[in-house]
Amino acid sequence: MGEDDVTLRVDSISKSFGDFSAVDDLSFNVRAGRIFGFLGPNGAGKTTTIRMIVGITIPDSGEIELFGKRINGTAQDHIGYLPEERGLYKKTKVVDQLRYFAALKNVPQKEADRRIDRWMDRMELSEWKNKKTTDLSKGMQQKIQFIATVLHDPDLLILDEPFSGLDPVNVEFMIDVLAEFRQSHKTVIFSTHLMETAERLCHDILLVNKGKKVLAGSLREVKESYGRNRVAIRVDGAHDLLNNFSGVESIEEKADEKILSMRSDADPQELLRSLVSSGATVTKFAYVEPTLNDIFIEQIGGAK
């Protein structure tokens, strides 16, 4: 399989509840071996979309294909889904719960036991195997939930806010695990509202708002389309020059530098030349890529 193999094809799906349109004509592709960031504010239709992908609900219209086939019961066995709101049976032993979840994904019991041991060992939870959920800390429960999601060795992993409530050590650990998944050419869809995390992990992003696609593409493309119009500078003096330079739209003061937003037709090089010739001491002059956070705020904030 090449880098461009499409794992999941979502073709103009819509879903409404009564008068409320939760997802409206949404289309996107998720490519194999990549981490796909599914971003959007609360209530944007992320969870509704994910529920349709994992087969919990059926779209009113549109089609979802996994590995080129329409989604159905057997497709569910190839998807690992970690919902945002998640839980475990309170009074059931950890190992029994995991066996049950594996059985529901058609994993034979022996194989399931082997994998449970391996994952519990990896998560350093082996001694908790025969404990009940109520004996576990919140972080441990989250790890057990993650194990339940990957026990059937899914080809597509869908994680809804996977890091909420995890301590930094465990977040790093999870990120390692995700990297492994990617290397074995599996696909990860990863929904979050934490733009920093998304920026760090995702190859492709899809930003939705009010059930509609706002922007989509690889992180690279998205950032480039937001262009080279932001400059970070550290300069002594030349206050007036900066304020009066015609290409500068706004100046954001940081602790020891300024971020200039420039009009798209302005040339930052021109500004640099003016600064140097004015005799000001420029210690830093760098293009700033927009952060996902910036893009998010610009897109969603503007849409409001």
Binding site: V54, I56, I79, Y81, P83, L88, F101, L104
Partner: peptide
């Protein structure tokens, strides 16, 4: 406990 969500995505 929202286990239903996991269950419904499996069966």
């Amino acid at each position: 406990t929202r286990i239903a969500e996991i269950l419904f995505s499996s069966a």
